[in-house]
Protein backbone atom coordinates (compact mmCIF):
# COMPACT_ATOMS: atom_id res chain seq x y z
CA UNK A 1 0.00 0.00 0.00
CA UNK A 2 1.27 3.44 -0.91
CA UNK A 3 1.09 5.30 2.38
CA UNK A 4 2.55 8.71 3.15
CA UNK A 5 5.47 9.04 5.56
CA UNK A 6 3.06 10.51 8.12
CA UNK A 7 0.67 7.56 7.88
CA UNK A 8 3.57 5.16 8.36
CA UNK A 9 4.81 7.19 11.32
CA UNK A 10 1.43 7.18 13.07
CA UNK A 11 0.92 3.54 12.20
CA UNK A 12 4.32 2.44 13.52
CA UNK A 13 4.26 4.67 16.61
CA UNK A 14 0.62 5.20 17.38
CA UNK A 15 -0.15 8.06 19.80
CA UNK A 16 -2.71 7.59 22.55
CA UNK A 17 -3.08 3.87 22.08
CA UNK A 18 -4.76 2.00 24.91
CA UNK A 19 -7.79 2.42 27.16
CA UNK A 20 -8.87 4.69 30.01
CA UNK A 21 -10.21 3.28 33.24
CA UNK A 22 -13.19 5.27 34.50
CA UNK A 23 -13.52 7.04 31.19
CA UNK A 24 -16.39 9.48 30.74
CA UNK A 25 -17.39 8.35 27.28
CA UNK A 26 -16.72 5.36 25.05
CA UNK A 27 -17.46 5.11 21.36
CA UNK A 28 -17.17 1.83 19.49
CA UNK A 29 -17.97 1.62 15.81
CA UNK A 30 -17.65 -1.04 13.17
CA UNK A 31 -16.87 -0.53 9.55
CA UNK A 32 -19.54 -1.75 7.17
CA UNK A 33 -16.99 -1.87 4.33
CA UNK A 34 -14.38 -4.29 5.56
CA UNK A 35 -15.55 -5.19 9.05
CA UNK A 36 -13.06 -3.32 11.21
CA UNK A 37 -13.59 -1.90 14.66
CA UNK A 38 -12.47 1.25 16.42
CA UNK A 39 -12.97 2.16 20.05
CA UNK A 40 -12.37 5.62 21.55
CA UNK A 41 -12.19 6.42 25.28
CA UNK A 42 -12.65 10.01 26.49
CA UNK A 43 -11.85 11.74 29.75
CA UNK A 44 -13.80 15.01 29.88
CA UNK A 45 -13.47 17.96 32.23
CA UNK A 46 -15.67 21.03 31.82
CA UNK A 47 -16.59 20.19 28.26
CA UNK A 48 -12.98 19.71 27.32
CA UNK A 49 -11.30 16.44 26.31
CA UNK A 50 -8.43 16.12 28.77
CA UNK A 51 -7.47 12.62 27.75
CA UNK A 52 -8.26 10.28 24.90
CA UNK A 53 -7.18 6.75 24.01
CA UNK A 54 -8.02 4.40 21.19
CA UNK A 55 -8.04 0.72 20.27
CA UNK A 56 -8.30 -0.30 16.64
CA UNK A 57 -8.72 -3.57 14.80
CA UNK A 58 -7.93 -2.63 11.26
CA UNK A 59 -5.47 -1.77 8.53
CA UNK A 60 -2.54 0.62 8.60
CA UNK A 61 -4.74 3.52 7.50
CA UNK A 62 -7.28 2.78 10.23
CA UNK A 63 -4.62 2.69 12.93
CA UNK A 64 -2.92 5.85 11.64
CA UNK A 65 -6.32 7.63 11.42
CA UNK A 66 -7.12 6.67 15.00
CA UNK A 67 -3.79 7.91 16.19
CA UNK A 68 -4.03 11.20 14.29
CA UNK A 69 -7.66 11.79 15.27
CA UNK A 70 -6.90 11.36 18.97
CA UNK A 71 -4.02 13.83 18.65
CA UNK A 72 -6.27 16.32 16.93
CA UNK A 73 -9.02 16.24 19.58
CA UNK A 74 -6.89 16.07 22.70
CA UNK A 75 -7.37 19.29 24.67
CA UNK A 76 -10.22 20.41 22.43
CA UNK A 77 -13.77 21.18 23.54
CA UNK A 78 -16.41 18.57 22.81
CA UNK A 79 -17.90 20.89 20.18
CA UNK A 80 -14.55 21.28 18.44
CA UNK A 81 -13.95 17.53 18.55
CA UNK A 82 -17.40 16.91 17.11
CA UNK A 83 -16.52 19.09 14.12
CA UNK A 84 -13.47 16.99 13.21
CA UNK A 85 -14.16 15.42 9.83
CA UNK A 86 -12.61 12.33 8.34
CA UNK A 87 -11.28 14.56 5.54
CA UNK A 88 -9.40 16.66 8.08
CA UNK A 89 -7.90 13.52 9.59
CA UNK A 90 -6.83 12.29 6.16
CA UNK A 91 -5.36 15.69 5.31
CA UNK A 92 -3.43 15.81 8.55
CA UNK A 93 -1.93 12.48 7.51
CA UNK A 94 -0.85 13.99 4.15
CA UNK A 95 -3.62 12.06 2.43
CA UNK A 96 -4.81 8.47 2.23
CA UNK A 97 -5.12 6.24 -0.82
CA UNK A 98 -8.69 6.58 -2.19
CA UNK A 99 -9.55 2.99 -1.27
CA UNK A 100 -8.55 3.76 2.34
CA UNK A 101 -10.69 6.88 2.85
CA UNK A 102 -13.40 4.83 4.53
CA UNK A 103 -10.93 3.88 7.28
CA UNK A 104 -10.74 7.52 8.39
CA UNK A 105 -14.55 7.61 8.59
CA UNK A 106 -14.21 5.13 11.39
CA UNK A 107 -12.32 7.69 13.49
CA UNK A 108 -14.90 10.42 12.92
CA UNK A 109 -17.74 8.09 13.81
CA UNK A 110 -16.04 6.68 16.88
CA UNK A 111 -15.47 10.21 18.21
CA UNK A 112 -19.14 11.08 17.64
CA UNK A 113 -20.20 7.92 19.43
CA UNK A 114 -17.90 8.63 22.36
CA UNK A 115 -19.15 12.20 22.72
CA UNK A 116 -22.76 11.07 22.63
CA UNK A 117 -22.01 8.34 25.14
CA UNK A 118 -20.66 11.05 27.43
CA UNK A 119 -23.70 13.26 26.87
CA UNK A 120 -26.09 10.38 27.54
CA UNK A 121 -24.29 9.50 30.75
CA UNK A 122 -24.69 13.15 31.80
CA UNK A 123 -28.41 12.90 31.04
CA UNK A 124 -28.07 15.25 28.07
CA UNK A 125 -29.52 14.96 24.58
CA UNK A 126 -27.09 13.30 22.13
CA UNK A 127 -26.02 15.45 19.19
CA UNK A 128 -27.02 14.55 15.69
CA UNK A 129 -25.44 17.22 13.49
Amino acid sequence: MDYSVKVMDHFSNPRNMGSIENSDGIGEVGNAKCGDIMKIFLKVEEDRIVDVKFQTFGCGAAIASSSMATELIKGKTLKEAWELSNKAVAEALDGLPPIKMHCSMLAEEAIHEAINDYLRKKGLEPWTE
Partner: peptide, 14 residues
Protein backbone atom coordinates in the same frame (compact mmCIF):
# COMPACT_ATOMS: atom_id res chain seq x y z
CA UNK B 1 -6.98 -13.98 16.26
CA UNK B 2 -7.86 -10.35 17.12
CA UNK B 3 -5.60 -8.69 14.57
CA UNK B 4 -5.78 -7.52 10.97
CA UNK B 5 -3.52 -8.75 8.18
CA UNK B 6 -2.59 -5.59 6.33
CA UNK B 7 -1.16 -3.97 9.44
CA UNK B 8 0.63 -7.25 10.10
CA UNK B 9 2.19 -7.18 6.61
CA UNK B 10 3.30 -3.56 7.05
CA UNK B 11 5.08 -4.36 10.30
CA UNK B 12 6.67 -7.45 8.76
CA UNK B 13 7.74 -5.40 5.75
CA UNK B 14 9.49 -2.99 8.09
Amino acid sequence: EYIEGESLLLLLNA
